[in-house]
Simulated scan of single mutants.
Amino acid sequence: MAFIYCLSGQNIEKNIHYGKRILDALIDIVQGVSFIECTEECFSRRRCLSVNYWRSILLCEMNSVDQSSHLLSDEPKTVFADISLLEQHFVGGCRNHKCAINMKCVPGPFGTHRCEIQVIQRRCFDNTNFYRTWPDYKDGFGNFKEKTDFWIGNDVIHMLTKNGYTYMRVEMLKTDNEPLEAEYSHFFVGDESTKYNLTIRGFKGLYVDVLDCMTNKDYKQTDANGMKFSTFDNDKRNGCADYCRSGWWFHSCTCGNVNGLFGNKKTASVMRWMCKDGWNCPLKATRILLRV
Rank of each mutant, 00 (worst) to 15 (best):
M1Q: 10
M1W: 05
C6A: 14
S8Q: 09
G9F: 05
G9W: 06
G9I: 07
I12V: 15
I12T: 09
E13T: 14
N15D: 15
Y18A: 11
R21W: 09
L23W: 04
L23N: 06
L23D: 09
I27E: 09
Q31W: 14
G32I: 12
V33I: 14
S34C: 02
S34A: 02
T39W: 03
E41T: 13
F43N: 11
R46P: 00
C48S: 10
L49I: 06
V51G: 01
S56L: 13
I57S: 09
L58A: 07
N63H: 14
N63K: 07
V65K: 03
Q67N: 11
S68T: 11
S68H: 05
L72N: 03
E75S: 11
K77Y: 04
T78V: 07
A81N: 02
D82S: 05
D82G: 04
E87N: 15
C94R: 01
N102T: 11
K104W: 07
G111V: 12
T112I: 11
T112L: 14
R114Q: 11
E116P: 00
T133F: 12
D149W: 01
G153I: 13
D155K: 00
D155H: 01
H158Q: 07
G164K: 04
Y165A: 14
Y165E: 11
Y167L: 09
M168S: 10
V170H: 07
K174V: 02
D176L: 03
N177G: 01
E192T: 10
E192S: 14
S193I: 09
T199F: 11
G202F: 08
F203T: 05
M214G: 08
M214N: 08
T215K: 00
N216K: 05
N216G: 02
K220H: 10
K228C: 13
F229M: 02
T231D: 06
D233L: 07
R237W: 02
G239M: 06
C240L: 06
D242Q: 07
C244K: 08
F250W: 00
H251M: 12
C253I: 05
T254F: 09
G256A: 12
N257Y: 02
L261D: 11
G263Q: 06
N264R: 05
K265M: 11
V270A: 02
M271A: 03
W273N: 06
M274L: 12
G278N: 05
C281N: 01
T286S: 15
L290Q: 05
L290W: 03
